[in-house]
Design a protein around this nucleic acid. Structure first.
Lengths: 153, 153
DNA sequence: CAGCATAATGAGAATGAGTCTGATTTGCAT
DNA sequence: ATGCAAATCAGACTCATTCTCATTATGCTG
């Protein structure tokens, strides 16, 4: 696997604690969704979440998936990402930075994360100059992944 | 107002020429859409385009609107923007830079453009370090516009 | 200029993500 | 244990977008 697994306070725990603090009751569907998102690093569509839960034998109503994702997004526990494919994607939002953005291959649809501190800085700087109270941002780079680029040549 | 209006070679002309060069025939619906986009500075949804054309007495089939927008997007003559509201927006894409991005008010849905050279630079710089062949990008800042911010206070 | 091949267009059906509804289940405070 | 409100679910529904296919128009050719 990739890195050291410092799962001291996992996103899952943080999330459940935040929900409890905010006065929400526990619920099976919500736990299942949170657990799934905690396992996944990449952004999933609602459809994918639904499918995986069903495959795990923990089917959850479609409406519940959307409702839960909406709630988690409101609480800033997940980030909703729209890369322009007509479907929303969701991934956990770690409170301690670890912010990344996405590359989208317009040929094959593949999505890949990347991060860049200088870019973050530039965004923060410009955010302060605007009339909006900016509290979130999203950068999507479109292009061709190495496979598709080679194929096009 | 902002800048001098150097409409030497308008986007409209550039677009029609590009289409012709690419071997596309002319067509009334396409002209109407191109003309409308040429007049508008902000990003429009397909629905808005459809409505305005109808209001102008130049109704165009819904399918045509989408087909035309798709073609223009492919040819990089318009840019498709997805700010996460479940609807795509389109605006002309000027070949000579004049690149802007968007602020979205998550309360009222208002969209406002902004631009920042430093941000562009940061994006270009990071683009060169990636395995993807990046040829387009999109930055969306989410937050609250001044009206909604005041209302929330 | 007439005729043709084919691109462009339009109306409406089809698709599919996301939302809403109303009934049922479950968590939890008492 | 009991009751009420929150959570869940199935399925109906909405609405943006795409597909289909018949019709119209463009631009070339003779």
């Amino acid at each position: 696997m990739a890195g050291t697994r410092a799962t001291r306070t996992s996103w899952r725990e943080h999330t459940l604690a935040t929900l409890a603090d905010a006065g929400y009751r526990r619920g099976g569907a919500r736990n299942a969704v949170v657990e799934l998102l905690d396992r996944e690093d990449c952004a999933l569509t609602a459809q994918e979440i639904d499918d995986r839960l069903r495959a795990d034998g923990r089917g959850v109503g479609r409406a519940s998936v959307y409702r839960i994702l909406e709630l988690l997004t409101e609480l800033r526990l997940v980030q909703r990402i729209d890369v322009g494919q007509g479907v929303a994607r969701y991934e956990r939002h770690l409170p301690d930075g670890d912010h990344h953005h996405h590359l989208v291959c317009d040929s094959c649809g593949q999505i890949e994360p990347f991060e860049d501190p200088a870019l973050e800085q530039a965004i923060e700087r410009v955010s302060r100059t605007l009339s909006f109270a900016v509290d979130d941002h999203d950068v999507v780079l479109h292009g061709a992944c190495s496979d598709c680029r080679d194929a096009a040549a």
